Amino acid sequence: MSVAEFCVTDSRVSSHPAPSWGERIRQWRRNNRQRFNRTLARLFGTSRAKRMPLAPDTRRILVVRLNKRLGNILFLTPMLRSLSASLPEARIDLVIQSPAQVALLQSLPGVGQVYIQRNSLFGLLGLLRTIRRQRYDLAIDPTGNSASNRMSMALSGARQRLGFANKDQWLPLTHAAGRTQSRHQALQAVELLNDAIAEPEIECFDTLAVFPDNQARQAADRIWQTTLAGQADEAPVIGFFARATGRKQLPRHWWQAWIIAMRAAAPSAVLVEILPGDDARPISDELPHVAIKALTELAAFMARCDQFVAADSGPMHLAAAAGVPTVGLFQATSPRDYAPLGQSCISLEGKRLTPELTARTLAARL
């Protein structure tokens, strides 16, 4: 298949089979849950924005983001930095689901404890007791569309609750912002603070960020020397990640064509592939490649690259957070919502999403 054939969208109308009984039952449950949420919202919830000052003694803050996707967790970093800068005496704790992401969040200023939600009943009860003992002054749901986040906020016992107001918001909030669909997912969380908190004034950050510690940077330096073996002493290095989930992933032959185009556009550049695991097959056995499990070490390794390119994925956002000029490739999602947020980061989509143009773009940026 040629690149031109790859970029063409099939516009033929296909017939869809009737939904299975399982799909019908799931849809029925979703509809009933939605009706139940709206009934609760009308009785107790928060359907309109509510901008209020924070209590002057707000010092203990809990952010609830029950999600395992790396990109979604990195989307918290502008909001967390905004909170820390605006409330410098506060300690910000979080509840997430992936232990692998704890060190990334704890590298941020103001962040204290990062709790992990376990799936076992005893684990959940133990976490709830621990959280309630902290007597949080403020709990935040940065998404507005997660029933798990809302339930955790409700059970936290926090005396102030901040989130998005909408017709399905059944949780009584003390501070609420209207939901906007016109901004990047990460920036909506910053807007939540600015629109729902009247005082203090919010200092807003608009880029992703992580700050690996010295141990992570030293480990990344050793991996860099082993992987590149002196190839990058004077040559520019372009890192790339060729995987993504579902329709976001570009096919293998696209990346092979990109490597050929990249060698023509920037012959001196060294290409290094980031792999999702040790057992993953590289795009080219001739290129250096590496799999790094610890995310802080991976971020520190990426930070040494001159450029990074990837489809919409967690590593793309991690590269942007590490400060690497990143080119994001979008064929199934919108850069408006998911672009890499960082210094000198850009996105390519539509007709611009070809191996040749991507290679020329990267070469011009070196």
Rank of each mutant, 00 (worst) to 15 (best):
N214H: 12
A299S: 01
N31H: 01
A294L: 10
S182D: 15
I61E: 03
L74K: 14
D233K: 10
R33Y: 11
P88N: 12
Q34A: 12
Q331L: 04
K351F: 15
P355Q: 09
F36Y: 10
R118Y: 05
T333G: 08
Q249D: 07
P88D: 00
T333M: 02
V190K: 10
F330R: 09
N119P: 08
S344T: 00
L138A: 02
F330P: 04
N194S: 14
F301N: 00
N214M: 14
T296W: 00
C345Q: 09
R365L: 11
A332I: 05
A264V: 12
D168S: 06
S152R: 08
T227F: 07
G123M: 11
G323R: 03
A158C: 14
I202V: 15
L83G: 02
H16E: 10
L138H: 03
I131Y: 06
A100K: 13
P288E: 07
S152E: 10
G323K: 13
L162N: 04
Q188A: 15
R69H: 10
L62F: 02
W258K: 05
S15W: 02
Y115S: 06
V64K: 06
S334D: 07
A266I: 06
G110Y: 07
L250N: 04
Y115F: 12
R60V: 05
R26S: 15
R51K: 13
A154H: 15
I259S: 14
R252Y: 14
L298A: 12
G112W: 00
S15Y: 11
R24A: 04
C345F: 03
R252L: 14
L173S: 08
P212V: 02
R161A: 08
A299F: 11
E297I: 12
L127I: 11
A100T: 10
G163K: 09
F36S: 04
E356V: 13
L298P: 07
A216I: 01
R48F: 00
W224P: 06
I292K: 02
R35I: 13
P267C: 04
P236D: 12
R81N: 01
D137V: 05
H184S: 04
E234F: 09
I259E: 00
K248C: 07
E23L: 07
E89F: 02
T174I: 04
L40E: 02
L40K: 02
D93I: 01
G230I: 07
A18R: 11
A154K: 09
T358W: 02
A266L: 07
R336D: 01
R281E: 15
S84V: 05
A165I: 14
R129I: 13
P78S: 07
T130S: 15
R29P: 06
Y115A: 12
N37Y: 12
Y338I: 01
R42G: 15
A266K: 00
L348G: 09
S347L: 13
E286W: 08
A363M: 04
R252I: 12
M1E: 14
G123N: 06
Y338T: 03
L362Y: 03
S334P: 13
A85D: 15
A103T: 09
T130L: 15
I238M: 08
F301K: 00
V64S: 00
R336L: 14
A311N: 07
K50Y: 04
R33F: 03
E89I: 03
A165C: 08
G163Q: 04
L295K: 11
S20L: 10
A103C: 08
Q307C: 12
S284T: 07
F36P: 14
E23S: 04
